[in-house]
Simulated assay, not measured.
Amino acid sequence: MDTSAYLTAVVEQTRTLAEWVDNQDESAPVPTCPKWTLADLVDHVGATQRMVTMLVGGRMTDPSDAFAGYVPAPADSAEWRTWLNDGAAEAKQAFDSVTDDTPVWDPSGADAGVPFWSRRLFGEISVHRADAAAALGKDYELEPEHAAGAIEDWLDTMTSRGYWENKPDFAKAMRGDGQTLHFHTTDAAGEWLARREPDRVALEHSHTKADVAVRGPATDLLLVLSRRRPLAEAPQLEVLGERALFAHWIDHMDWTTDT
């Protein structure tokens, strides 16, 4: 997927989320994010999109101004639908105004801010829409190709140099001496090999023998990797090899649920 396709999908998925949360109970718990209410979830999604809009639209190489411009969600859930849709539309306009090589702050350390943030917004809404589905009893559906794209975002962000350097507890837990995990989507193109090294987790797109391999439908794999669905509730996923290694990996994939 390219930047334009990511943002089109962001607008579409945000529209679905906005319909789901319209006029809902602001205090409803979000079981996949135990510290959050539905109001927290809406606030996070919409405010994040607006901050990224400021970063990209303002061509910011220093993120402090965008973070200072945090815009909270309306307190009244009757206003959420419009607020969410407006934010997604503004984000798409911001990305339409730049090119992939426009200088924008990239927290991953790769110096490619526009592609990073387009994919990050897509990954955010894909996972957080699953949170809303869990909170409201909705069926969560995602095209396999989109689920594979969200897995790519999740894995690439979690294994980036910037994430490693800014999350010391994560880095400590993920240090290794070459242990490998292979992830493979069976209904869309997607293969990833993660190697736990002393100074990073190296991510490759390859098919090779690993200490543990996890394969199955892309949406199931996304929800398990992002800790939105327990492995025991994803019977279509096949785990081959050292299950304890995969369990350790999942135990530390807590970036979104703790925010």
Rank of each mutant, 00 (worst) to 15 (best):
D43S: 11
E242V: 12
T48Q: 07
V127T: 13
G149N: 05
P74K: 13
V239N: 02
D177E: 14
R129V: 06
V98H: 01
S97Y: 13
W105L: 02
N166H: 13
M51T: 14
T102F: 01
L231C: 12
K92C: 04
T61W: 14
M158S: 09
P144L: 05
A66H: 02
D254I: 11
T32L: 04
F116V: 09
G216M: 04
E152A: 12
Q13Y: 05
R196P: 06
T159Q: 01
T99Y: 00
V239P: 00
R195I: 13
A234P: 03
E143Q: 13
L55M: 15
L7V: 09
M174L: 11
T61K: 14
K92H: 12
A218T: 12
T259N: 10
A194L: 14
L231G: 12
T82D: 04
T102P: 01
T159V: 05
A148K: 14
A135W: 07
M54H: 08
Y6S: 00
A194S: 07
T8Q: 13
R129E: 06
M253F: 10
N166F: 06
Q236C: 00
S108M: 05
P230R: 11
P235E: 05
F122G: 00
V45C: 06
L245H: 03
P103C: 14
T82R: 14
W192D: 00
W80C: 05
D131K: 14
Y140E: 10
A88N: 09
F183A: 04
D211V: 02
H184Y: 06
T102I: 07
P217M: 02
A132I: 10
G176H: 04
E124C: 11
V21E: 01
S77A: 15
S108C: 08
D76Q: 10
V42P: 04
L136Q: 01
V10K: 02
L221Y: 04
F183I: 11
W255V: 12
L55W: 07
A232C: 10
L136A: 10
R228E: 01
D65N: 14
T99W: 00
E145D: 15
L237F: 08
